[in-house]
Design a protein around this nucleic acid. Sequence first.
DNA 1: CAATCAGGTCACGAGGTCAT
DNA 2: ATGACCTCGTGACCTGATTG
Lengths: 538, 538
Amino acid sequence: MSLRRHKQKQLHSDQSEVCELDDEDNYRYDDLTTVDDYVDDKRGVEGLQEGGSDSLSTALSRCAVCQDAASGVHYGVPACEGCKGFFRRIVSSRNIGGACAHSVPLEMTPQTRNTCQWCRLKKCCAVNMGRQRSKLGRRAKLRLRGASSAGAAAVVAPSDDQIMLPGCQSAATQLGGVGPLTYPSPPEPVTPPTPPHWQQTPASVKCLKLISRQGTGWRSSMPDAASSSNSPTASCSGAIPIPGANRSVAGSPASAPAVATPDTARAPKKVWLEKSCLMATPLAMICRRLAGPQRAAELEDLHNTLSFNNSVSHLILTAIDKFVGYWEADLNSQFAGNPACGDVIAENTRLILEGHRQTFYFTQNRMRQFMNDRLAQLQEPSPADEGVVLHTLVDYIPQLMLRIVAFSRNIFGGTSSHSMPEPAPQQQQHFETHRDRVSVSSCSDALTDSDKKRLIVQHSFKLVGMRFCASLVQSQQDFIIDPTMRFRLTRRFLQSAGHPMLSQLFLKFFDVSRKWDSLRIEENEMAFLSAFCLTSPC
Amino acid sequence: MSLRRHKQKQLHSDQSEVCELDDEDNYRYDDLTTVDDYVDDKRGVEGLQEGGSDSLSTALSRCAVCQDAASGVHYGVPACEGCKGFFRRIVSSRNIGGACAHSVPLEMTPQTRNTCQWCRLKKCCAVNMGRQRSKLGRRAKLRLRGASSAGAAAVVAPSDDQIMLPGCQSAATQLGGVGPLTYPSPPEPVTPPTPPHWQQTPASVKCLKLISRQGTGWRSSMPDAASSSNSPTASCSGAIPIPGANRSVAGSPASAPAVATPDTARAPKKVWLEKSCLMATPLAMICRRLAGPQRAAELEDLHNTLSFNNSVSHLILTAIDKFVGYWEADLNSQFAGNPACGDVIAENTRLILEGHRQTFYFTQNRMRQFMNDRLAQLQEPSPADEGVVLHTLVDYIPQLMLRIVAFSRNIFGGTSSHSMPEPAPQQQQHFETHRDRVSVSSCSDALTDSDKKRLIVQHSFKLVGMRFCASLVQSQQDFIIDPTMRFRLTRRFLQSAGHPMLSQLFLKFFDVSRKWDSLRIEENEMAFLSAFCLTSPC
DNA sequence: CAATCAGGTCACGAGGTCAT
DNA sequence: ATGACCTCGTGACCTGATTG
Ligand SMILES: [Zn+2]
Ligand SMILES: [Zn+2]
């Protein structure tokens, strides 16, 4: 093979000098395989006069992004070589580039597609390009609308290099019972938050509703949830007939009886949270604020300066990345037309905001007031006090994490250990939008308990860190307020500390917090960001 | 050359089964230049090299602008590094500066290409350089698809091929006396516009005021206005002490005693209109609307689909190009700080808008009303009526042109044949802005009569075409209303017409009009666009 | 097998740099 | 301001993996 390649290279270089027209012609024709090969290069492409399926072939012959000649279905949509390569570069190396000030995205044509990377990427996302949506192998012969095939191949990249602190694991394992959420000894009578609302109502009715489109909705993509999940008590029972998940979509029936994972065939998988879940909430609006053109440079900077090894910054970056990536996937506009969907969205919004408000104590208002009133009462620990500080943190951070768990109740609903009947009766609702049917299901039902646990285990500490950086880290004053609001941990103290949590993680918090501050994320936005992080599968 | 072309065509037709796909290419075959033929079509590029070094191979290895050694295909044409960089700087940083007055563009050779930026840029445009014509990525391997290399072997016409209608020349020559501006026989009592305001007041007081900055203001760049201008009565008397024109600015003293043009030293030149003139009006605002980010794609598209050989589209494109180019040259913000300058700007604005309003009959409102009321009364001429239609057009188009002349009075002021004292006493005013001194002079004084005439001769018909496309061409309904508003010239009629004005120019109007409509240019914007076109030296 | 696509390769040109 | 040179994104083509 390499020989052939070498030969070809040589041939090409020879031709570049003096073009032997005929030889080259024959040679190339041997290599040509598909009609697209003949058609690909110019925009003309009305070609494709091979008899039979005209509409299908023409529909597939156009790049969904730039209307150029498509070379096939790439990343789930018909795409040209250029857009395919563009998207591949973006999702692989992730150097998205920077800003574009186009309030309305530029039109994508083969001539203009290179004028703005950002608009091109937005268009790619708008037409629902996705690495997960890719399908390998030969297509079925006639009907190839391989929309939401359960891609058994490319699933969530494991990438689980989590930095787990002591105490995190325990908090994660005791997920079932949420302990008393009180501050054991707040030094000042800072009133603890009111008993969370989720404690008073059955959790099963308090969770996000999922809106999915038929055929393209939910990806059932946890093939190894039972086998390689880090939650040992993975229970894959409770099959939920998510529309589209088990429906044998034409063109993708073969993915279900995948050879590599035969268990996926017999164990009907729970659906995995995807962008549709939260993007059906007004997240698109948040996206616009979070990743607006005026913030693109900041995001870029955030990307560059923060190490990806740190879980906290990784969390934030990933979340923002998702926001940026799903920029144009404004599912809200798709679903908001349906009044029933609008109600679902509104309810989801309410749940997220309420959950955040009830579980997040260090709001910006509180912190501002605290900084005004009791800043002077903060003790600056000496290096000898490291043990005390460390002990305080180790004691209280799990409690902070429990608040995350409480927050997650508003997202996922309760686990089955909270007397949720399993499987719960499915009350799915179906609506008709202008383009296709949508179905609404309960987020609590759509996820198995193990999935919920895994999500919370993966993200709870990250969320704690995010909340930390958002409020407790005073990057301007260059100190960190400990969650009990007794100490002010200066950079000097942290640098001299011996424990890695203090000396490394908390010092890192300064950077993250500075970046976070520059993003000027409001409270409500933080709520959505948290919800999105919590449900992010990666 | 033609032989090879023929052969290639045949080859192409042989392959037409598989690859009949070049319909969508937006250029017309007639408009193709030699360079385009071999470069824009990548299949034809290498394929045609059968003999030794003939004109074709040199065309590929030679810069299309200056005949230097090309370093590749840049911006759609083979270009040397110098011309590539030159064009890049022009289109990116866009400080084109003023214009030269070489009526016939200078020859471009590697030695002489730096003598005149303007001529070089014109050559670049003539060979169809364009940012959107660039092709990225690796070139396709040989496919032997001759495709679109059919077409006349006409070499690049240096873009000066104006389409002059019968009557245009006469209107241009009788510039001095503006005839009666009445519609001889409007079929319906469409009220003719009120007698233009410029007829009632001395023209010398009604013209734009020029604002220039000291040292950077006016480029004295009409070196051969007296020698090679197409206006035979060029009178270069009346020296105006424009500040900075004779001042030997440090760093540019050598340009004045240029060796090639010794006459520039002894003949104090009139200043040439430059961007400062109209950019001192609120044009920057117009630019933002015309060339805002949301319209960038449209402008690109306009560039792509319209041939540069047509004078009308060339006009529009050039004007819009200028707008885009001067996008950032927001001189308005520089001068608006000075209250006196602000008054000048306001007065200029008023003059332009008023002049346009008084000389442009087919406003959007009128046309809308006409389309509602009297659309049914339009006659659709049969092919036998071509003579009548043609006669009508030839009769009335000069009258339309006279309106342009009337409009130009508000811009330039009257010519000296209208009892303007020459040279008029210069009342220059000087102001201090935050950065440097500015001076205000009269546009009427700054231009000689021959320059005014030349500008009007160059642009009047183009402006007529622009106004035509803006209003009379109903691209949606696919017909053109003749200026007497009696006929509806359908595309079918025009296609069957024998006269080139009908069959070629007016058919072209459909394309221009469609693009124009997509730009959604308002009436006031059109006024500024017209004024800018009229004063554009190119 | 063939068909299909993700990922990789690398010629090629846009845009930037910097001595002139 | 110019243009030789450089960097890097682009996309046509290739390869290997995957599936019918
Ligand atoms: Zn594309
Ligand atoms: Zn050149």
